[in-house]
Nucleic acid binder design. Structure first.
Lengths: 147, 147
DNA sequence: CTAGATGCAAACAGTTTGCGTCACT
DNA sequence: AGTGACGCAAACTGTTTGCATCTAG
């Protein structure tokens, strides 16, 4: 067994049972390049725990997200949603209830890049998401761990 | 029949047949508050065209997105994807192939708000998506209409 | 010892597709 | 008149759930 220490401590801090499955899933997410999805994680984890089930992978990803051990790329990954305001604008997003509110484009200073982008990338638009807790969720006691 | 003119011209410009279904779907998206999903649009459209099928709504939403008549809230609405880099960072997103590349947080000047946010909204983090066409798609001739 | 985690299978939600018919251009 | 849009049903993908069994604390 490897340096299980870190992960066990991490779980303990978040009041999660430190199971072997969890450790492997967690390590796998950190080790995979890019932005892996559950299926990819499952495929990779299965090389170390062939008997693991996809449901366990899903359940633990949810657990990790809920306790802030992992983060997802976007809070909007559910069903397709359309803009009804066709003018460019930004979004205010509640990380608890995921409500999306529009924020007119000039409510945010134009975003400035400090860094060269990868060669050949042609910028079309810059979208800003302001993530936080909305008033309604705030009063219900919602707290964001890490978003 | 109402001022069909605008919509017919719009369709003509985009080389789309101007059907009654399309017009009602389009008008419905613009008229619904917030960020409607296909199911909500379907429910609303059915009040004007009871015989319409959900498949038609989906097909036409896709058509509108492809020709830039409508825009979606987020390009990341597919399956759940996890961050493997746990440090805060931004994203470079190709609007054609939807590839996501990380951009370290200090590659972007800190975002500054010019406007008061809704009362009680507590900001946790600001996420920036730089939308554009990546080099690979660019060389394949991909063009973004409106993103 | 017990609450909670796992694995399996079945259920579900959202979306897409194939195909025969119908309508816009 | 012909290409493409519509409507229906069936297929598919990604995800969740119920339940019996097992395991970490």
């Amino acid at each position: 067994m490897r340096d299980t220490g870190n992960f066990r401590a991490l779980c303990h801090r978040h009041r999660l049972a430190a199971t072997h499955q969890r450790q492997v899933i967690y390590e796998t997410v950190l080790s995979l390049p890019g932005h892996p999805n559950p299926e990819e994680i499952y495929g990779q984890v299965r090389q170390r725990i062939p008997s693991i089930s996809l449901a366990t992978v899903y359940k633990n990803i949810r657990t990790f997200l809920a306790s802030g051990l992992l983060r997802e790329v976007s809070l909007h990954h559910g069903s397709l949603r359309l803009e009804n305001d066709q003018r460019p604008h930004h979004h205010l997003v509640c990380v608890s209830c995921r409500a999306i509110t529009d924020l007119q484009e000039d409510g945010v200073e134009p975003v400035r890049l400090r860094q060269r982008l990868p060669r050949g990338f042609r910028v079309k638009r810059i979208a800003v998401d302001i993530l936080g807790i909305c008033a309604a969720c705030s009063s219900k006691g919602a707290r964001a761990k890490r978003v």
